[in-house]
Structures are given as structure tokens and as C-alpha cells.
Design a protein around this nucleic acid. Structure first.
Lengths: 259, 259
DNA sequence: TCAAAAGTGTTCAGCATACACCCATGG
DNA sequence: CCATGGGTGTATGCTGAACACTTTTGA
């Protein structure tokens, strides 16, 4: 019964699972990978893996993120933001129901990553084993009951409790862009006010007034800093380019319109 | 290398640690227990323990809470609030640095509990092994550097990484009472507007305008429901008694004054 | 009568909203 | 010339901050 006795406590497997979100074609998308083995073989799941013996939880999540997407993690303190493609990474929640994995007792420390739009997912070179899927499709959002169109099959639900983890991650992202500058993590290093607005619109699923949005974000000190150039990639009048400023907390917050 | 092979992943011990907060004598206090064994023998620590083999994380935290305080957990869905003394309990974050426990690899899933003022802590009947300590004292808040008075010793720091866990829990509580009705978890079943205001003042360490606070909380639908009686336990004009209403989200939020 | 706490009414400033309007580009 | 998106100005309404004032008890 000494505290050093390994038989005094039950052994657990500890994993990290990743909710990696991005905005593609005006839709909030999550990275999912195809499971190659039982249980849930062939089903889509969140990327993840075992935490190594000498590894911190955040380091394990960052390692999995690099392995799955090639993204490096923004160190919040380090400036300039990152040499390569960077992403935001934070711990989300921990899931430990005794029956969440039929094989053994697994506790999963879920992490949330926000990434700019990437060319294509890579998962060991196999293009068919990883994809960006709209979260609306993965979570069947906006389908009260049996509202599925006759012709379309409902997609298979995610493996394990990953639908719950994904829902929690999406909810966290939706609420956190209200009062923080986190939405810039969905944008490339330089972006326009309109691009940032389309991020908010995609994540929240709403339409925002472009004029008031512009005044709000440019009027909040430290949120955006001018990058110097302009671009016309959206058509219309050229737009100023900005970089994310140092401010992380938005006060007053960006208000999410009623649903 | 089969997924069923227990040697394919390193075994972890999984614990729950509790940040139990209450408001006593106008100060935010946390429950700490004296460690009876190495490491950190004799030092104060957050209450906690191993998760059992067949137990969910939230259930383990609720069990520890009952063992340490006798408090039952409010089921958010169940009404009336609770038969006995109830408390709010939610998952906080997970701490898994490889060196956080010198004995072995321990991952701790910290939980945050908010409780009304209790007569006295009980920990196995030993009155000297558990106490409510002001968080300001435990975290040395507001002491820039070497500002400690000559006569007073700085209290011993908490064991393990519990100072960080406590700081995270306090920060969570401080921000969450802004936009939720969670502050009522610090109050007895029936309470006055003034008592609720003193909770906000203690948790935030600020002074609020009693008149505007009164209008704010009584004007938010679903936040407070009249309980019928009045009390004069604070002196002065008798105050109406209220119970916590069903609303959990405050919109617009209670604004925390600048520091 | 006074102190103390509970409530109510009123004014003012800041910010979100809505929308009219102008600017600069591509086709 | 027109469509498209970028950006500015302005009126309106809501709400939080500040504070004068009344109410109701105990000492």
C-alpha cells in the first residue's frame, strides 16, 4: 500500500485527440482521418495518438498536429508569429468514460487547433485516409429529426465519442472568437478585413454587416496592424492587408447576432 | 503491436484534483489538505485521489468532493436544486507534465467546485488536516517581488503543481461569473441581492455599486426568482429573499470593473 | 434620532445597429 | 457603364456608470 506500489492504482492509457478546425469555401471544417483498424474500422475519427512516456500533453498534441498536417504551433509569446505555417493550439477537455474505448481504459486529453486554409491534408501520403469535412455534415447540425433528404444518406457518425469531442471543440471556437483575437488563427499571415469577416460568418453561420465589422475591428487597438500593401483577390476595390496584432483579448467583445 | 497489446502504450496513473472554492468573511477561499506522506509531506495540497478502474472522471471528482466536504453535486437538470447542501462541479483542465510527480507518471484531471459557506471542513475527522485558506494567501496575489512584511513568513507553497491548478481554477471562476449565473453556487439556497453582490465583490476583489447591481440582477429574466420572505440578517432595511432562477447564461453579462 | 442597508428615479456617455453614401477596381 | 467589394459618415436606441433620493429596520 505504499504510494510507490504500481498495483495501488489502476493503469490507464492516455491519448491526445485533436479537433483541427479551418475555414474552407465559407464553411467551418474539421480534419478527420479514416480508421484502419478495429474498433470502428473504416469509420472517420479525429486524429490522435498515445502520449509518450516522457512527453507533456501539449507536446504530444503539437507532435500529432505536425504529423497529421505539417502545421507548427504558434508560440503565443514568440514574435514574429512563425517561420512556417502556424496554428493555434490549446487544451480542450478530457474524456474518460470507462466504456469509451471497448479495448481498454483510455483517457483522452482533447486539444483544439485552429489553422488557416491548407492546400490538402496529408496523412502518411495516403490522400484517401484524411479529409477536411464540414462540421455541419459531421454533426448533422440543423436536422431536427428525420429531416434527412430521401436521396442522401446520413454520413456515418464519427468513431468513439469523437462527435461529442468535436461538438465541444466547435462550441469552444465559436464562443472564443467573441472575446479574443483567435479568429485571426484561421487567416493567412496577411489578410483583409473582409477575409476576417468571412471567417466570423463561417464559424458562426451568420451574416455580418461589412461596414460595422470594419469599424469594429480596425477601431479595436492592438487587434489588427496594417501590413502595408493592398490586394484585390476578392474583386472590387483593393483592400488593405493586415497582420494580427498583439492584443489577445477583445474588449468590448465582438457580438454574435441572435439566432 | 496489436492495439490490444498493453505493452504498446505506456501506463499512466490518473487522478482527479479538486479546486473547491467558497466565500468566507468577504474573501475567496480554497479547500486545502495537509499531506501525510512523501513527497511534499506536511505541505498543503489540493484534495484529490486516484480514479477508480470503472469510474468516469466526473464521478471520481464528485466522490472526492463528498469524501472531503460532504457536499453533493447539483445535477444541472434536476429541480429543486438539491435535497442537501449542493455545489457546482465542472471539469477544469488536465495536467500531465512528466515530472509533476516525482514518484511516477501521473495525469491529473483537475475539477472546479463552487460551494456555499460551510461550517468547517472535515477530512477524516482530523480538524488540523484540512482548512479553508484565502486564495490570496495561497497564491501570494498582489506581491510584486519581496514585498513580504518582515515579521510574517510567506506560507509554504502548495505541493506539486497545485499552485498553478489553483490559479487556473480561480481564473475560471472569476471569468465565468461574468457571463453565467454561477455566482449563486456560492450562496445558500435563499439569499439576498446584497449577499450575491458581496460574492461578486469577494471573487473579483472589487467594490460594486449596490444600486446598479440590484437593478442588473433583478432585471435579468430567469436569474433570480423571489422566494417570498425577507431577512434583516445584514442589518438595515429588510431585504427580499431570492432563489437561483433557471437561467444559466447572463446576457448581457455582468461587467467586471477595470483593475 | 441616527446609522446602515435596501431599493427607485434620472441623467449622461459610449457603443451597437442600420443604412446612406462615396471610392476603386475589373469586365 | 456597371457590378463588386472596400471604406466613411451619421442618426437612433439600448445599457452601463454615476449619483440623488426615499424606504425600512436596529441601536
Amino acid at each position: 500500500m505504499s504510494p510507490y506500489d504500481p498495483s495501488a492504482f489502476p493503469p490507464f492509457a492516455v491519448t491526445v485527440d485533436l479537433v483541427v478546425l479551418t475555414v474552407r469555401r465559407h464553411a467551418l471544417c474539421a480534419l478527420v482521418v479514416r480508421r484502419g483498424e478495429a474498433p470502428f474500422q473504416g469509420r472517420w475519427a479525429l486524429p490522435g495518438g498515445f502520449v509518450r512516456d516522457d512527453e507533456d500533453l501539449g507536446a504530444a498534441a503539437a507532435r500529432e498536429l505536425v504529423e497529421e498536417t505539417g502545421l507548427c504551433v504558434h508560440d503565443p509569446g514568440a514574435l514574429p508569429p512563425a517561420p512556417g505555417k502556424g496554428a493555434h493550439l490549446e487544451q480542450l477537455a478530457t474524456y474518460g468514460d470507462p466504456r469509451r474505448d471497448p479495448r481498454m481504459r483510455v483517457v483522452s486529453v482533447a486539444h483544439l487547433a485552429l489553422a488557416p486554409d491548407l492546400p490538402a491534408p496529408r496523412a502518411g501520403g495516403d490522400a484517401n485516409s484524411a479529409r477536411w469535412a464540414p462540421v455541419e455534415e459531421l454533426l448533422h447540425e440543423g436536422e431536427p429529426a428525420g429531416e434527412a433528404p430521401a436521396g442522401e444518406d446520413r454520413p456515418e457518425p464519427l468513431a468513439f465519442d469523437h462527435a461529442q469531442i468535436l461538438a465541444d471543440g466547435v462550441e469552444r471556437a465559436r464562443s472564443k472568437i467573441e472575446y479574443s483575437s483567435l479568429a485571426t488563427a484561421f487567416c493567412p499571415p496577411e489578410f483583409t478585413v473582409g477575409e476576417l469577416r468571412r471567417v466570423y460568418e463561417a464559424v458562426w453561420g451568420v451574416v455580418l454587416d461589412p461596414r460595422n465589422f470594419h469599424r469594429k475591428v480596425t477601431g479595436t487597438p492592438g487587434f489588427l496592424v496594417p501590413a502595408g500593401g493592398t490586394t484585390t483577390r476578392q474583386g472590387g476595390r483593393p483592400a488593405q492587408l493586415f497582420r494580427a496584432g498583439g492584443a489577445t483579448l477583445l474588449n468590448p467583445p465582438m457580438l454574435r447576432p441572435e439566432v
